[in-house]
Simulated assay, not measured.
Amino acid sequence: VAALRRAAEARSRALAERGAVTDAALEAATLARLQADQAVIQRRQALASARNRLARARVALDRRRVQLEEARRRLEDFVLVAPFAGRLTEVAPLQLGGRVGAGERLARLIDPARLEVAFTVSRSAFARLIDAEGRLRPLPVELRLELAERQVLARGRLVRAGAALGAGQSGRRLYAALEGPAPLVPGDLVTLEVEEPPLEGVAELPARAIGADGTVLALGAGERLEAVPVRVLRRHGDRVVIDARPLAGREVVAVRSPLLGAGLKVRPLREGGAEAPAPGSDQAATGTVRLDPERRKRLIEAVRASRLPAEARERILRRLEAPEVPAALVRRIERRIGG
Rank of each mutant, 00 (worst) to 15 (best):
A127C: 07
R58F: 06
P183C: 09
A148S: 13
G162V: 01
E70R: 02
R135Q: 14
A55Q: 12
Q42S: 12
A92W: 12
P83R: 05
L143N: 04
V159D: 06
R150N: 11
Q169R: 10
G101F: 09
P83G: 03
A167C: 00
L109Q: 03
A132M: 10
A55V: 12
N52S: 13
V121Q: 01
R65D: 10
A182E: 02
G168P: 01
L136K: 04
R172L: 08
E90P: 00
L158M: 05
R74I: 02
Q151F: 09
A50V: 06
V66N: 06
A48I: 00
R64W: 10
E149A: 15
L145H: 11
A148T: 11
F78G: 07
Y175W: 13
E104L: 14
A161M: 11
V100G: 09
R144T: 15
S122I: 06
N52K: 08
L136I: 06
G171M: 08
A55S: 13
L129T: 01
L153R: 14
G86A: 01
E146C: 03
V152R: 08
E133N: 13
R63F: 08
Q95S: 15
L178E: 06
G86P: 00
A148F: 11
A125V: 15
R135E: 13
E179Q: 15
V66F: 05
D111P: 00
E69D: 08
E142A: 05
D188N: 13
S124I: 10
S124H: 13
P186F: 04
A127K: 07
D131L: 10
L94Q: 11
L61E: 14
V141T: 03
F119K: 04
P181S: 09
D62C: 05
A164C: 01
F78Q: 15
A182Y: 00
L96C: 06
P140H: 00
T89C: 06
P186M: 07
R155T: 14
R99L: 14
V185Y: 03
V79N: 07
L129A: 07
R63P: 00
F78M: 14
L174G: 01
P181Q: 12
E146R: 15
R114K: 11
R157S: 09
V159A: 08
E149Y: 10
I110C: 03
G180Q: 09
P186R: 07
S124Y: 11
V121P: 01
R53W: 09
Q151R: 15
A148D: 13
R63K: 09
V81P: 02
V152S: 09
F119T: 02
R74K: 08
G162Q: 00
L178K: 05
L147F: 04
T120Q: 12
V40R: 12
R114M: 04
D188G: 00
G171K: 04
R99F: 09
A154P: 05
E90Y: 03
R56Y: 05
S49Y: 07
L153V: 15
